[in-house]
Amino acid sequence: MARWGMVIDLDRCTGCAACEVACKSENNIAPVSAGEADMGRATSWMKVMAQVEGEFPDTTMHFYPRPCMHCDNPPCIRVCPVQATYINDEGVVGQIYSRCIGCRYCANACPYMVKYFNWYGPEWAQSERNHLNPDVSVRPAGVIEKCTFCHHRLQKAREDARAEERELREEDYQPACADICPTGAIVFGDLDDPSHRVYSLKEDPRALRIMEDLGTQPKVYYLRPRE
């Protein structure tokens, strides 16, 4: 059984945010108005965070692209009263939009803040509906949504591999963010499969996980910047 995970090289990330926009495009994430954004209601399953240290001229800045960490021990699924958020056999943490009651307990329980709430229904102009991805459902008002590691792509990749009567290869299934990254900073694959790049990258001495001490066992690793 695969255990999907991600390794993000902080030395390679330039914070360009292509991953963010690629994710929004792939997953039909509706932009919000400026006023809503000011209130902190913009949704970005993948969000480029920044850590700044020091003042001019000795400032350093590192960008942390932050998807859902897809914890092996996710705090969010334990607190959900209706089993709307779950972890599947392959370690992907998902959300059942049609069951979620919108209590936002999981959003509070997640130390990584990667669960996003639909304060209003999505707003798309009629013309904009043309670019919606038919593989991903549009979320209604009042439910939580989150990064899925582009799970719909896995389903497609599996079907294609089966049709071609071959094993699933690493490059067959890549989430949108890893796919687009112009510097290859985001590497995705099966953490348990030695033929995948993430298998060895996660053992790199630079590898770290955010708030590892909480015992959430995230499956998103970061490669610490070299000084």
Partner: peptide, 14 residues
């Protein structure tokens, strides 16, 4: 209209 009518936001979920 949705819970957007409140002042709640991210990270102030409650």
């Amino acid at each position: 209209y949705g819970l957007g009518r409140t002042g709640l936001n991210r990270p102030e979920y409650w």
